[in-house]
């Protein structure tokens, strides 16, 4: 069942993105920035974790999860170190996406040429 909900929830989040593209004429950079901020806000309200429990990868694969994880990292550290933890903990949980992107970006640049 989680496979079904992953498909539906993930697809729905993408449809929201498509509406931002086509109806509000936002470019991808702005749209994705809005998504990340939205993910952070949803987690701030405590809504993102239940969504992941419900939809699995449908909620953890869209870029909104990036905002969710950033808040998670900050909150984890904040619980131990207070306000200072908010600053130092932001990348605690979310390192996978960014480090994978950097690593595979550089490897990609080494082995591929743009196709044009």
């Amino acid at each position: 069942m989680i496979f079904f909900w992953a498909f539906v929830v993930g697809g729905t989040i993408c449809v929201i993105g498509q509406i931002l593209f086509d109806v509000f004429k936002l470019n991808p950079g702005v749209t994705l920035t809005i998504f990340v901020i939205a993910g952070a806000i949803l987690d701030g309200l405590g809504l993102y974790d239940p969504l992941i429990d419900f939809a699995g990868a449908g909620a953890s694969v869209p870029i909104t999860n990036f905002g969710n994880q950033l808040v998670h990292g900050a909150m984890q550290e904040a619980e131990q170190h207070g306000i200072i933890g908010v600053v130092t903990g932001i990348f605690e949980v979310t390192s996978a996406g960014i480090s994978a992107a950097i690593i595979f970006g550089v490897i990609g640049a080494i082995i591929f040429k743009p196709k044009g």
């Binding site: 593209f21 086509d22 470019n27 991808p28 743009p114 196709k115 044009g116």
Partner: peptide, 20 residues
Amino acid sequence: HNAATEKQFRYPTEYGGQKP
């Protein structure tokens, strides 16, 4: 040149942005 112009004015050629 298509790719040189894309790079200059828009996105990297391999970027999956949707054009209207």
